[in-house]
Simulated scan of single mutants.
Amino acid sequence: MKLAFLVDPLPKLKVTKDSSIAMMRAAQARGHEIWTCQREGLCWEEGAVWLSAQLIALTDGGAGAWYEVVSEARVRADQFDALLMRQDPPFDFEYLTATWLLERAEAQGARVWNRPRAIRDHSEKLSILEFPQFTPATMVARDPERIHAFIDALGDVILKPLDGMGGSQIFRVHREDHNRYVIVETLTHHGHRTIMAQEYLPQIRDGDKRVLVIAGQVMPYALARIPKPGETRGNLAAGGRGVAVPLTEAEREVAEALAPILWQRGLLIVGLDLIGGRLTEINVTSPTCMVEIAAQTGFSAAERVIEALERLAAG
Rank of each mutant, 00 (worst) to 15 (best):
H190A: 12
V182H: 14
E199M: 05
S168N: 05
R205I: 11
M165H: 12
R205Y: 01
G191W: 00
V157G: 06
R180P: 00
S168A: 15
L159A: 12
Q198V: 05
R175P: 01
G155V: 09
Y181H: 13
N179G: 10
L201G: 06
Y200D: 03
D208F: 03
R172D: 13
A197N: 07
Q203H: 14
G166T: 08
V157F: 03
R180D: 08
R172T: 11
S168D: 09
E176D: 11
T186H: 05
I204Q: 06
D208T: 14
R180N: 05
H189C: 06
R175E: 14
S168E: 14
L154A: 08
E199K: 02
P161R: 05
P202L: 03
E185H: 11
L162R: 09
N179W: 02
Y200A: 11
I183Q: 07
I158M: 13
N179C: 10
G164T: 09
I170M: 15
D177V: 05
G166V: 02
H189Q: 14
G191M: 04
M196H: 02
V182W: 02
K160V: 08
M196D: 05
T186K: 04
I195G: 08
E185Y: 00
Y181F: 03
T186L: 14
G167L: 11
L159S: 09
G191N: 02
L154F: 14
Q203F: 00
V157W: 00
E199A: 11
E185D: 15
H174C: 13
H174F: 11
I183G: 01
H174R: 15
